[in-house]
Amino acid sequence: MTTSIKTPLGICKITGDALGISKIEILEQEDFQQEEIPKELEVAVEQLKRYFSGELKDFTIKMNPSGTEFQKQVWQALNRIPYGETRSYLELSKELGNVKAIRAVAAANGKNPLWIVTPCHRVIGSDGSLTGYAGGLWRKKWLLDFENPPLQQELF
């Protein structure tokens, strides 16, 4: 089953069934037609809307992503990064017990099928730089700023 919702970052497509949400992705298309939301996807739709309205920081939807055991370990580590915080790929590699797995961690991060809910946008380079993001770096920057707005507005 699938449904789509409009977000500030574009159209979000949600796929899942009674076992949980298997995929959440951002689409590059702009045209959107409201469709009926399958019962099994209602909670995901509601929580994503609440996230984008600033009312929700932690998702509690049932997740059922497809991936290797290693990918699932990385995605579980991503789910432990608190709202408004970031981690580097190196920090994630250390947390998973293998500092040399940094490239594998980055690759698994890039294969994350649950956009926003499993917060791959919270992973940055060791030097603090915004590194690759499947949805585009502008979306990653938007999400990080949304979750951790600057204390003072920029003057220029």
Rank of each mutant, 00 (worst) to 15 (best):
E28L: 10
G54K: 11
D145E: 15
K23H: 10
D145H: 10
I37P: 00
N64Q: 15
S129Y: 05
Q47V: 05
L144C: 09
G110K: 08
I81D: 01
G125E: 11
G67D: 06
I5W: 02
W142Q: 09
G67W: 04
K140L: 09
W75L: 05
K111H: 14
L48G: 00
Q76T: 13
V43S: 11
E147K: 07
L19I: 03
T2M: 08
E30M: 08
L41N: 01
R87L: 13
Q34N: 10
E42W: 01
K6P: 01
G110W: 05
V43I: 11
L151W: 05
I5C: 02
I21S: 01
S4W: 00
L137K: 15
S88G: 08
Q47M: 08
T86S: 13
T2C: 04
P38R: 08
R103G: 04
F59N: 00
I11P: 00
Y51C: 03
I116T: 11
P113R: 05
K141Y: 09
K141G: 06
L137P: 00
I61N: 03
G16C: 05
Q73E: 14
E95Q: 15
W75K: 03
T60F: 09
N64S: 14
K111W: 09
Q73A: 10
P65A: 11
K72D: 03
Q73T: 06
I81A: 04
K111F: 10
S22F: 00
F146A: 06
I124C: 06
A108H: 03
A106G: 12
K140H: 07
I116Y: 05
L19V: 08
Q29M: 10
P82A: 13
F32P: 01
V45M: 07
K100N: 11
Q29T: 15
M63A: 09
P38A: 09
L92D: 00
E55G: 03
P119E: 09
K39C: 05
Q73R: 13
G97W: 12
I11D: 03
L114S: 01
A104E: 15
W138N: 12
I14T: 05
F52C: 08
G125I: 04
A44S: 15
F70C: 05
L137E: 13
E28C: 05
I21W: 01
